[in-house]
């Protein structure tokens, strides 16, 4: 099993080291919206070879191929949903970095909200407890305190 894993990694590495075809550095778009769509899609799609990089960052050859594919699809007028469907039909939902809200990943979004609600609840209980009159120190007590501090300061100066 370990051997196999090592071999797969080797295979993937050899795939990424190669670059026969021209790269994608000369992509231009007809409208700035299209360019922005391309950029944001690149951040949201995961490279399957270098699995910790987005398509924007990865130099793997498969990433280059996919960038070209997305570029082609944008230029021929496909919208973002069509492009993502195309990719998930072939590579599965693994390729999407931003889990679109659906039943499966609802917990990802619901749990933080739930936790915040619990937190707010805890604080509101604290509020109920402490909802007395806001502290106002009577002036006489304040004067006494000030006098004491002054007295102690003078004493400490003498030491």
């Amino acid at each position: 099993m370990m051997e196999m894993i090592r071999i797969v990694v080797l295979a993937l590495a050899s795939l990424s080291a190669l670059s026969i075809l021209a790269s994608d550095y000369s992509y231009t778009f007809t409208t700035p919206q299209r360019e922005m769509r391309y950029q944001s899609l690149m951040e949201e799609l995961r490279c399957l070879v270098c699995q910790n990089q987005s398509l924007a960052d990865s130099n793997a050859e498969l990433a280059q191929d996919l960038r070209k594919k997305v570029y082609d699809m944008i230029t021929t007028g496909n919208d973002d949903d069509q492009i993502m469907d195309f990719l998930t039909d072939r590579y599965g939902k693994f390729i999407l970095y931003d889990p679109k809200l659906n039943y499966e990943n609802a917990p990802l979004w619901l749990l933080p909200i739930l936790m915040i609600c619990i937190g707010v609840y805890v604080i509101s209980r604290l509020a109920k407890q402490g909802e007395r009159s806001e502290a106002v120190i009577p002036q006489s007590a304040q004067d006494d305190a000030d006098a004491l501090v002054k007295h102690l300061e003078e004493r400490s100066k003498q030491l």
Binding site: R46, K93, L96, Y97, L108
Partner: peptide, 20 residues
């Protein structure tokens, strides 16, 4: 851990990355 959880439950592989 969510991708691991989904995998452990047999629901396939998904990715959670920087956007989330």
């Amino acid at each position: 851990l969510y991708p691991l959880l989904i995998d452990a439950l047999g629901l396939g592989k998904m990715s959670v990355g920087a956007p989330y």
